[in-house]
Structure formats: C-alpha cells, structure tokens
Design a protein around this nucleic acid. Structure first.
Length: 279
DNA sequence: GACCAGGATTGCT
DNA sequence: AGCAATCATGGT
C-alpha cells in the first residue's frame, strides 16, 4: 500500500524524533518504523519521497480500519502548511520556516504514553529513557525485534520494590502501579477520552495521584494528538522560549500565556516546534 | 559538591 | 492560596 501527501511532511524528522525514544523500532537508514498494533500484528511504515514530495509504503496492515489508524498516528490528514501559515506573522514564524513539515506524531499506545509521561516527570531525558527502556524490557514483550508496553494488569500486580530495583523512586513506583490499578479496575478509561474536550480530560486525569497538568497535557498531545495544548510547566519549553525571545532568564508563566491567543488553536505545534528548536 | 533535569504531592504557614 | 521540602539519579 503506497500513499502520498499534497503538503510538506518531513518524515525523516519524524523518525528522528521517534528514535529519540529507544522503545521505538526505528531504522533511520531504511527510513522505516515498525509499529506494534493493538491487534497483535506489526505494521511497517517506510518513507519513499522527500519532504517536498512525501510518499510512504505501508506494509502488513490487516484491514482498512488499521490503515486509518496508522494514518491517524502520523497525522497524514492534518495540513501542516495551513498550520505554518497560521504562525507566519507571530513571534514563532521563523521556527515554522526552519523546521517546516515537522509533524505531530502520536505514540503507539495510550497506556504506554501515560506510563512514559509519568516516568519522564522531572528527569533529564537520557535517564528517563533508560528507565522507560528498563520498564519495557522487564515487563513488556518483544515481538520480532519490536518492543511492546505491558498490559496494565501486569503492572497493577507489582509491588513498589519491583520498580525500585529498576531505580524508580518509591513515589514514581507508586504512581505507575496506582494508575495501572485504576485502569484495571475501570476507574480510569483511557479509551473513552476520544470524544471529550481537552479540559474535561485534564480534569479527569489529574484526579488520579501522580498525574498533574504537565502529564495530562502531554497525554492529550502525544496520546490523543490534540492540536491545542501547551505544557507551561515544561522546562524544555521555558528554555526554548528564553532563547527565541532573547531573554537572560526563563520566561514567567504570564509571559508565556500572553502569547496563547496568537498561537491558538495550534498551541501543540508551538510547543512541538519550540522543542524542536533546542534538540 | 551544588544544582538542575521535558513534575507532582505533601505539609506547613 | 502560596511556598518549601521531597523524591532518584545523571549530567554539567
């Protein structure tokens, strides 16, 4: 199955971003990522064209529903040129020229992205990737060289010490186990968020111990692919804005929020391109 | 050796 | 309501 897009799409950049997380099965030379699907099979997505003329080869999809799911993960239906145009006359205009075609790619597993976001809280990226990798290697499974996050029931059954052994903090271990229990017991249903407003999802999520605004906003961005979130507590975004605005300190919450009306309804893309600017 | 990392919670004023 | 301490560990 081959498809092409009528707008700039930097697939290599998307792959580099995915490759930043060692859990993902990315081959930069072959321009390929293999995606472990919920249905059990592994879909292969390979880039064929260029950023200006993007096309893709999709292999091993079971049916049309799954094809739509893959397209949705990579946002092949979301016009990046329209979004760049929106930022043209804002303070972030240059970013959208420098990194044109950078897409917002969703993670492959809702539960996985929640666990990953918890694990990544407040830690530097290198160490947090070590932790997520240990988590997946210890409790997930490997199918044909592709790692898959475990099911929540497996984590819900753990003791704090099982995660302490992987060098989780005691508190982080409690969060991860507690949230997994909430999912198993049906108190937290990640699959029912699709038709709810951002604010409603955030409200429900932060009611659970371990989930704060940053984690809920990241889940909405990278789990559900929502276009209009800006995790204001994020140190990386603060540092990126410090650089873009030429400040000698990190910007205040108020200074950042002042720009929201200009960036909206694409706050997620403002965040994505700001992260891109400091990578 | 201090201080900060792509934070959240708890306890204290 | 707002602030400080706490958490594990790696990098600077």
């Amino acid at each position: 199955m081959q498809i092409s897009l009528p707008f700039k799409y930097d697939f290599d950049r998307a792959l580099e971003r995915l490759a930043g997380d060692p859990v993902n099965a990315v081959d930069l030379q072959k321009r390929e990522v293999r995606i472990p699907m919920e249905e059990g099979n592994i879909v292969s997505l390979r880039g064929l064209g260029s950023t200006d003329s993007p096309s893709f080869l999709i292999d091993n999809v079971l049916d049309d529903a799954q094809l739509q799911k893959v397209k949705s993960i990579f946002h092949f239906d979301r016009r990046l040129d329209t979004i760049a145009e929106h930022f043209k006359h804002t303070d972030l205009g240059q970013l959208f020229i420098d990194h044109a075609g950078t897409p917002l790619v969703k993670s492959f597993s809702l539960y996985g992205t929640l666990m990953k976001n918890i694990i990544h809280q407040q830690l530097n990226l290198t160490f947090s990737h070590v932790l997520t990798m240990r988590f997946v290697e210890t409790f997930g499974d490997n199918q044909d060289g592709v790692w898959r996050y475990p099911n929540p029931d497996k984590i819900a059954a753990l003791e704090v010490d099982n995660l302490r052994e992987l060098q989780f903090s005691g508190r982080k271990a409690e969060y991860v186990i507690g949230l997994s229990k909430a999912i198993v017991e049906g108190e937290l249903d990640l699959t029912k968020f699709d038709h709810k407003e951002d604010e409603e999802v955030i409200c429900e999520m932060v009611a659970h111990r371990g989930v704060g605004p940053w984690t809920a906003q990241n889940f909405l961005m990278f789990g559900l692919g929502r276009p209009n979130l800006f995790p204001i507590a994020d140190i990386g975004l603060q540092n990126a804005l410090k650089q873009v605005w030429g400040l000698d300190r990190k910007p205040t919450k108020e200074e950042m929020m002042e720009r929201f009306p200009d960036w909206s309804p694409y706050l997620s893309y403002a965040a994505l391109y700001l992260w891109r600017s400091i990578e």
